[in-house]
Design a protein around this nucleic acid. Sequence first.
DNA 1: TTAGGCACTGCGCGAATTTG
DNA 2: CAAATTCGCGCAGTGCCTAA
Length: 212
Amino acid sequence: MLAKRENGRTGTILGRKGAQTRARLLAATRELLQTVSPFQLTVVAIAKAAQTASATLYVYFDDVEHVLYELCEEACHEFSEMLARHPGWFTDRENIAEHVERFIEEYNRVWDRHSHVLLYRNLEADRGNLRFLDVRTLTAMPIVHLLAAAIQAARPGLTELQAQSDAIVLYSAVERLAGTRRNYATMGRGMPFDELMQAQIRVIIGHLVLPS
DNA sequence: TTAGGCACTGCGCGAATTTG
DNA sequence: CAAATTCGCGCAGTGCCTAA
């Protein structure tokens, strides 16, 4: 019996062979993104790298953007897993510095693994592409909610909306800096990235600990 | 204007799987 | 076990776009 699951282009159920071909196409795209801009990716290049015909790609995906979207979803899933591993990222006041530092490190690690497709996701989201906006929001909101809850616990004087807004500002900085990390590493100009990571940790902790 | 490269589709073939 | 059906695939073709 085939291990079937729904992930054909039109929601059709794939057999083992189909699932393998689909995975090969995703892996080939991931590999190509190391050297080719997502805007220059072609169906022909992906199909060739996956050792299949270009027509076959249309069995599983609508177009190249659809392939990139699927890779975004994979990255989103990894962020969810990371979050689920440590539910107390921002709430364990005893070891808050250690937890926040670890969060920043792990967030950047996941980002680095998917940086090409995440940068593409953000650009598409910023220019109003709704499905990429959705997948970006899906990653951000659980983190923002955790942060907001911890901020409000530390500062009961803040309204829920204020705490939520603070959390969005903090998260935006973390996400943006993760996206520019590669530039700091490869160009060697501007601030050392380690300093910026330490600054992120200080700023976040500053919002999670009651002023003495 | 033309050649070449691209995205995309229709159709049929062969392999795998199911059915009787 | 043979026939029927399903599935995955790629050839061949169309139309669009761009650079020369």
